[in-house]
Design a protein around this nucleic acid. Structure first.
Length: 413
DNA sequence: TCTGGGGTCCTAGGACCC
DNA sequence: TCTGGGGTCCTAGGACCC
């Protein structure tokens, strides 16, 4: 089996775009964001600044850190353009996120040269046409290609020859493997496993004991060369959700209802736009102490009406709060809809839900809600999202992430 | 001013069916 | 009276990724 899988990853993407747009930022530690670091340049990473970090902490680590607002349209445009460069070589492209994709070039080497040559060309073109650094890993499987691109960073190319895979992996730290995060790393460290080489010689059964069946299987897959390599170019989302960190607020209707309405509005609008109603509604409440609790319900029929989703979410949140009577303060609310219908061109039924006439298909209120959603969707299509809504202006969200940034993270449904 | 927001997948237990 | 196992679905929690 030859090494024909590529993993391409734009380096410090948002920060690189900002440095591209404003030359005075080049070579400097910068962070996109404000209250929270959404992305950091390599210069900032050298100080320990990381994505997801509170802005204040980042400033402590790096006093000369420059914060920039974020050119979200440009992120989307340049991310798309980079992926398109890869698409010029093969249709077998699996996009993982705005700045990252797998590709299988097995079928196009006769046209464009070896996988290593193709990878080098992709890097040159992205550099020449978009002025952005991109790292590429080339290997026999997706997992190995991903590890290779991490090793290649920043702005590099690493090809893993199938004959020397074990040597390549041997000394690399386990956390470079997909699915090995802080918790797993700590557990492995307890049994003296720090490198992938050590992991490979650890018996599967002992990993299973430590980390569960999937982990044992994963190691076996790597060791026995059964790691997946298919490129899935048309993956559909399995869920859609939204959340809002609301600071510390009392767990009362006045706070909860408008927040859930806003979240449900965003989610349901996306679901309707793609005709993908869902059957399972999950709600998450995070308390002041950062402990979070979830509740979910699976309906007989899928939904995507804003008010129905809102009401179901409210009932679930109420059920949580009843169970935690001592928690008076909440800091985050989230809604997610899963079990999405594959293809639903039909006008949907309303759920035979928990209770209440408004959710029944035949009733006047149920139909009225459906009509209202349709009308609002149309007006927003023409005049923009904020032209109309459910009066969610008085939302208790002060320093949240900009909506454009949220949209970048949304997966195509 | 103590910690963002969008996702995927795995696990474990229980209900239920055959 | 006592008993098996497999499969599927649902729920809650958690780890992880970008």
């Amino acid at each position: 089996m030859k090494a024909t899988i590529l993993h391409a990853d734009l380096d410090a993407f948002y920060a690189s775009v900002e440095q591209l747009l404003d030359p005075s930022l080049r070579g400097k530690p910068i962070a996109v964001g404000g209250g929270v670091v959404l992305a950091a340049s390599y210069e900032a990473k050298a100080f320990g600044v990381r994505g997801g970090m509170p802005g204040r902490q980042a400033r402590e680590l790096c006093p000369q850190l420059t914060f920039v607002g974020g050119h979200f349209k440009d992120y989307q445009r340049l991310g798309d353009a980079a992926i398109k460069v890869i698409g010029d070589f093969t249709p077998l492209v699996e996009r993982i996120s705005i700045d990252e994709a797998f590709a299988d070039v097995a079928g196009c080497t006769h046209l464009f040269g070896s996988p290593a040559e193709i990878a080098a060309t992709i890097r040159q073109r992205v550099r020449a046409e978009l002025s952005l650094p991109i790292s590429v890993g080339v290997a026999r499987t997706k997992h190995l290609a991903k590890i290779a691109s991490q090793v290649a960073k920043p702005d590099g190319l690493v090809v893993v020859d199938p004959d020397t895979e074990l040597e390549f992996l041997h000394h690399l730290p386990v956390e470079l493997m997909w699915g090995v995060g802080p918790v797993t790393m700590a557990r492995l460290a307890e049994i003296g496993v720090q490198t992938i080489g050590q992991l490979a010689t650890t018996p599967g059964w002992s990993l299973e004991q430590l980390l569960g069946p999937a982990a044992g299987e994963k190691r076996a897959a790597l060791a026995w060369n059964r790691d997946p390599r298919e490129i899935k170019s048309h993956r559909r989302a399995r869920s859609a959700g939204a959340q809002s960190a609301i600071g510390r607020r009392p767990a009362v209707e006045r706070v909860i209802r408008p927040t859930l309405l806003h979240l449900a509005d965003r989610i349901a609008t996306r679901l309707r736009a793609k005709s993908r109603p869902g059957r399972t509604v999950t709600v998450r409440v995070r308390f002041a102490n950062l402990r979070s609790v979830t509740r979910s319900v699976t309906l007989d029929a899928p939904i995507f009406a804003t008010l129905i989703l809102t009401e179901l979410a409210e009932e679930l949140v109420r059920a949580i709060l009843v169970n935690y009577p001592d928690e008076k303060i909440i800091s985050l609310l989230a809604i997610s809809v899963s079990h999405l219908e594959e293809n639903c061109d039909l006008e949907l039924e309303l759920p035979l839900g928990l209770e209440g006439d408004a959710r029944r298909p035949g009733t006047k209120r149920g139909l009225a809600r459906q009509a209202a959603d349709g009308a609002i969707d149309k007006i927003r299509d023409r005049f923009g999202w904020n032209s109309i809504g459910y009066g969610s202006a008085a939302l208790p969200n002060s320093h949240s992430v900009p909506d454009e940034f949220r949209r970048l993270a949304e997966k195509d449904l």
